[in-house]
Design a protein around this nucleic acid. Structure first.
Lengths: 98, 98
DNA sequence: ATATTTAACTTTGAAAAACAAAGTACTTTT
DNA sequence: AAAAGTACTTTGTTTTTCAAAGTTAAATAT
């Protein structure tokens, strides 16, 4: 037997980062406030998790406007999609026995 | 939309506890050393994660012998099986979109 | 024109979690 | 008698998480 958790990605140990990714997999862009409300987070907390995902280049940020109001949105990168899929595959392999 | 991470169980945020549970789901009993080797952990670290799972009554411990040598094994409880399944269901719901 | 609000952060600091290393008690093997 | 294995507990450090407050800049309300 081999270590069943070795292939899990440390970045996705966090439920919040997992939640962000799961949302970005199906929505090409999501706004900061939408994420904040959906995941019920303080802005500081959300911002720091987003920063972790950005550092890993799993997501990228778009600073734009709605009318003349600033609007920041996030989207998943190809690398992020790959890494997320790999993580889910590892998870599934781990629990396929069920 | 509703918060996609709200139904995840905090106890299973840890990859190690997730690994332990995934092993106990398919093996009715696993020894301390087997867990330790499989998950590549120090005994202190493993013991404390096992303790967390025990406190939650997700696993139970059996102190026995192999011959005249002490042997501690762990098994999943009904509650543990339920909770683990609920967690996996929540995870799956979160990512079914893929 | 001034004040308040909103957006999207950054900084600070505290609390919690994870972890390794060492120590313990007891037994077994050499 | 000495060394090694089992299953921890204790101690202390490091890492992670998080909330709260502060910041900057623009928008809206008064």
């Amino acid at each position: 037997m081999k270590n069943p958790i070795a292939d899990l990605n440390k970045i996705f140990d966090s439920r919040i980062r997992l939640g962000v990714m799961s949302m970005l997999v199906v929505n090409k862009e999501i706004g900061f406030n939408d994420l904040k409300q959906m995941l019920e987070l303080t802005d500081g907390n959300l911002a720091s998790h987003l920063n972790t995902l950005e550092q890993a280049e799993f997501i990228k940020v778009h600073k734009g406007f709605i009318g003349r109001k600033t609007n920041t949105t996030y989207s998943i990168t190809d690398l992020g999609r790959q890494a997320f899929k790999a993580h889910l595959d590892a998870l599934e392999k781990m629990i396929r026995k069920l």
